[in-house]
Design a protein around this nucleic acid. Structure first.
Lengths: 217, 217
DNA sequence: CGGGACGTTGACGGTCGTCAAAATTAGTGG
DNA sequence: CCACTAATTTTGACGACCGTCAACGTCCCG
């Protein structure tokens, strides 16, 4: 949340993020077609969002962790166009969007904060398009691991040790690859001594090597 | 723009979209790293937006036409992270973003309109991720043609005749394919009698066939 | 402790990328 | 207006990368 706010403004922002809710692993926070009413701030836990095409293909569009906001897809048509599913037990704050709009008319910093959150999501998706459109399997997975590690590190976790909360299939869906390719690519990284992998526990041994894979010279 | 506004509100919205500007084919409206100050509404013409990775790969992130808004990527970091290039002579309205924020604090409809525009872009990019992540070349190109035709039709143009304003390479970049693949796939569609192609002039002969390619049963 | 979900590995084939050459078009300057 | 050059497009041959199918192994979780 933005800084430099008065006590009164902070209290008013607090007032719209009152309703907490627990979401168990495997449960959906919202799903495609559901009426849009709230944005959700993740307090703890880990989510995926995914869309499904008419003919049944589905695509993971993102993985979200503590401090991130989900539900922005629902604004444009007043219903959600993706599913949000908890990949581990989670706690979220449901924030009525109408109240966010009301209050952001009075608190400039909140208004700008909302705009930034949406713009950040647009820029993130540009990066995913670059990944999906022009990278090879190893490059995609390396970029994915570095991104996860960086976001976890920003939250106080280790820079090199991470626990994947999603399956190989979900990683594959996000990266536009099949689960076998994810598995094979992990094995290749292990052979090369870049990471250690024990199930969903990943230990990054050589960050620079991963960066070189993402950005080959 | 939203409806149901008073004359006074409309006048005030008009006041922030005063500055028109012409952009010649090939010129950039803004580029990566440039300070973000304005959003741009396209009045006439056709743009592409693209990003470039550190190692020089670039990815077209979208094609924009009259009535669409570009520049949203700049909000989050106060500088643009992509390039916007005119693919034909164009005219745009530059709208100072600070004024948009100011006015949208007073005009609810404008506020919600801005939110919807950003949400729409997020949802559009979800669709591109699905395309890039799970479709084959024919499916991608068919989806691309249908999308273009639909948007042009919404602007009063023919539903079946369209003129591509971009090269095969730019289409390929957007769709995560090489230009040769785009060319070959066009040729395949022509062989199948689905479209006629003369350079950049495309005539869709069988819309349903294209839809069946996108959504194979 | 058992069953089902998840992950790994191998063999093989298809799709699309790469490289190359030729054809067609568009843009430029005389 | 035309000639000429650069840019774009098409097509072919070939190979790499990743998907598909299958079998097996491992790990949770009840």
């Amino acid at each position: 949340m933005p800084v430099g706010l008065s006590h009164e403004e902070l209290d008013r922002i607090d007032s719209i993020i009152g309703a907490r809710r627990k979401v168990k692993r495997g449960e959906t926070l919202f799903h495609n077609g559901e009426r849009f009413t709230h944005l959700y701030a993740i307090r703890t836990g880990f989510f995926k969002t995914s869309i499904t095409s008419e003919d049944g293909r589905d695509q993971v569009t993102g993985f979200q962790m503590a401090g991130e906001i989900i539900g922005l897809d629902g604004i444009v048509q007043d219903y959600h166009t993706c599913d949000a599913i908890a990949l581990e037990d989670a706690e979220i704050c449901a924030m009525p969007f109408s109240q966010i709009e009301d209050l952001s008319r009075e608190v400039n910093a909140l208004q700008h904060h909302v705009h930034k959150i949406m713009s950040r999501e647009i820029v993130r998706e540009h990066g995913v398009m670059l990944l999906l459109g022009s990278m090879r399997a190893e490059e995609r997975l390396a970029a994915f691991l570095l991104n996860l590690a960086q976001r976890l590190h920003a939250r106080g976790f280790s820079q090199s040790e991470l626990v994947l909360r999603m399956t190989r299939e979900e990683i594959g869906s996000y990266l536009g690859l099949k689960l076998e390719t994810i598995s094979r690519t992990f094995s290749k990284f292990v052979d090369e001594g870049v990471v250690e992998v024990k199930q969903r526990h990943v230990h990054i041994l050589n960050t620079e090597a991963l960066q070189d894979i993402v950005n080959p010279k």
